[in-house]
Write a protein that binds this DNA or RNA. Structure first.
Lengths: 229, 229
DNA sequence: ACGTAGACTTGATAAAGATCAAGTTTCGAT
DNA sequence: ATCGAAACTTGATCTTTATCAAGTCTACGT
């Protein structure tokens, strides 16, 4: 990877505090790869070859079992993924595919583990990163076990609105079937749940969702920082 | 805490590789506390005061939302819990209570963070620990999203049998209502699901579960290392 | 040993969610 | 602009899970 492209990656909490030398060691071993949309990046069950960092585009993390498939997360720039598998050198628990054309920075797993062994600042940053991700999954499990599908959707809308700047107008950049899978429901039920939320201040048409009445929506959704982050 | 009690804790992967001096710093600040059964240890939403280590007895990690409660994990000796909250100094996402009389080693959170800052081996061990826990929650979420409640029970039986030594006779040491909550179902449905599994080689009576036909049970359960660990 | 509270089971019913089957809309390719 | 495939919606039905309501069992304290 060329040096002028390093800065955004260097700015990530995971790499911010490590030594210049060790960061260079990671980047020199890494390469930036372009992928078209809907291409498989990694498959659950395989051993990790690379630490992946989404630099551009979006990536779906999903898992299959017994003919079913579910979306576990959708990763956007600039974020690492499958860090836990790389550091433990154990098989991936998730598969990954591009949702859009994407640029992925790929750092050889061995290099990551080597640098991890000699750079204490990197090790400490990794602890913070993993602890944060861990908490994300705790929240996801609570969300799944303690809410109905309509409530999950309502809270997703509130959260997504905040991420998109709080304009109360959300533009979907993924298929609704993907959103349904991420929220743990079928596409059919996402449709019905959206229709249901009309009674709680939500208007939707095509790829747009509009919050007409935040108070009413929040009243129904019962957002909770211990579940929604 | 007295020095003769340190050895089992010192043997944990999390503490094994750190310097003698820093381990002593942790232990000298720590104290071993006895609790009766059914006592609250921590409450979600609070800021962490201590890293907890179950030395004896069993502890339930659970969460509440909107009048509902769900069990997230049951922790047995010798294991740390709420590590992620301690290291990030952020509010607990889970509550904890004793299920039986228990001994808990409590290490002040500040001490843990201090030692973490200066002992690289501890930081690296923490990465491994957190990565492992992270993967546990990924599996839990997959288990929840990709299986029916009866399948979750069937796989729990297979797994618990392995943990108890593969004798095909499981002795429950927790209430069935707790097990139901851990597996994401109501007590009523746990009863019905157990009855259902009679058709797949499982006999149960009171606190005992017997696997009469492992092949039949496995055939129904479809165990998968990417979900069950 | 007895009594009682709580745990467990079982049945009936309701709610939530999935599946099946049309239709309709959207969007990209020609 | 048109066509066709895929995405989306809506309705009907079925499965899964939760809730309500008895009952039975179990374990513990007196």
């Amino acid at each position: 990877m060329r040096q002028q492209d390093w800065s955004t990656v260097r700015a990530l909490p995971l790499f911010r505090d490590m030594s210049e030398e060790n960061f260079a060691a990671l980047m020199n071993a890494a390469f930036l790869q372009r992928f078209p949309a809907h291409v498989s990046l990694i498959a659950e069950g395989d051993l990790p070859d690379f630490l992946h960092i989404v630099v551009e585009g979006s990536v779906e993390l999903f898992a299959r079992h017994d003919g079913q498939e579910t979306t576990l997360d959708i990763v956007r720039p600039v974020t690492t993924f499958i860090l836990a598998a790389v550091i433990r050198d154990e098989v991936y628990l998730k598969s990954a595919r591009t949702l859009s054309p994407a640029q992925i920075l790929m750092v050889p797993a061995r290099t990551v583990r080597e640098v991890f062994g000699r750079d204490a600042a990197f090790a400490r940053a990794m602890v913070n990163e993993l602890a944060d991700r861990y908490r994300g999954f705790v929240r996801a499990l609570k969300n799944e076990k303690l809410r109905t599908s309509t409530e999950r959707l309502a809270n997703w809308i509130l959260q997504e609105d905040r991420h998109q700047g709080g304009t109360r107008t959300i533009a979907l950049d993924i298929d609704k079937r993907k959103l349904a899978s991420r929220l743990g429901m079928t596409p059919e039920n996402l449709s019905r749940n959206l229709a249901q939320l009309a009674a709680h201040g939500v208007r939707s048409s095509g790829r747009g969702i509009e919050i007409k009445d935040v108070a009413a929506l929040a009243d129904f959704a019962k957002p909770n920082t211990l579940l929604d982050g």
